[in-house]
Design a protein around this nucleic acid. Sequence first.
DNA 1: TCTGGGGTCCTAGGACCC
DNA 2: TCTGGGGTCCTAGGACCC
Length: 407
Amino acid sequence: MERQILHVDVNNAFLSWLAVYKLQNGEEIDIREQVSVIGGDETKRSGIVLAKSTKAKQFGIITGETLYSARQKCKNLQVYHGNFKIYKEYSNKLYNLLLQYTDKIERFSIDECFLDMTDYLMKDTLLNKAKEINAKVKKELGFTVNVGVANNKLLAKMASDFTKPDKVHTLFKEEIQTKMWKLPISELFMIGKKTVPKLYNMKIKTIGDLANYDKQILVKKFGKHGKLMWEYANGIDNSEVKYLEEKPKSIGNSITLPMDINDIQQLEEVLLALTQQVTNRLRKQELLANVINVQLRTKNFENFSHQAKLDSPTSSTKEILNKAKFLLNEMYEEGMFIRLIGIKIDNLISRNEMQISLFDNTENSKKQEKLDKTMDLINEKYGYNFITRAGTLNSDKIVRIVNKDAK
DNA sequence: TCTGGGGTCCTAGGACCC
DNA sequence: TCTGGGGTCCTAGGACCC
């Protein structure tokens, strides 16, 4: 049986949500009506555009560009700073509203959901439901969404991306040629800026060009990705709506430093702060890590990463930090100026899944675990600045900056 | 006062084993 | 004198997404 899928996408999510939040808290100006963006913090060297208003878009401002560049395009651009707590709150409101339609909802990102309506609907009523959702979100939550209507996730997602904002679009099989094939190749999901020029060299400029290209040649040239993009161009996607909550496969924390650092000891202190936050999240999820990865970015934007497997899975801050420090020292060379440092833990397994470790039940490791738990509680209550291990006692400005947003 | 941070998945190449 | 192969595991790096 054919599946009935909706894709719900919040228009200019971060900006819309901040606008609604401001209006609900007494602000009279609707920042969506301005030439405005949500931006990072230039003093922290993270000054990029995260979301833009419709009017800002008309000036040619694009997501991801620097605020400096955006201001060049519009001199009196209004820049606002977002807040993840607000985003999460409105994301949850949307999710709860959608639950009135089905419980088969995949939260694809903070501002996108897939709904599997197959169990409930025949095709003709699907479009009506999409329109109903579109209107209900606007009326009850105060922001607008695009809704894509199709028979699989890929086409639903492509449909919700057509024209914005506040629109409902269908993309059924018989509409693929007229609605999707004329679009430039860059519009296809999973074709990014590295692939576009390669396809252009092959005279593939539209999604239709790709759909009608020899599949075997694409597979030979691009491997699995070649197969995927040919299928997507032809509207083929059999993936399921993953509505059951899944544990993360990796947990990471990285920061662009307020200034380039060439002192390994300072880097180690930052690494400690980052590690504490990562391991805290790890323990909250009741997971254990097997692989530790440390990433560095130099002032010239060269990226390096080293990773290593642990002898046995752990959630211990101390063990993970030790390995992370080792990796940092392995990678760092005298005179390197570091712009970004990050830690990622990988190959996560659930705590109960782990065979009762026969070796790892020593008094010492029990003590460590207890210490970690205590610190988690204190950190959650007072913020990450309150207590740290001995390593941060001589902490300086940088570590305080890292920790500032932790809570 | 240019270029975020959080993820997932894939690939190439080396080590090692049979 | 050319110099097996397949498989697995591991690491580094990179593509893509929001």
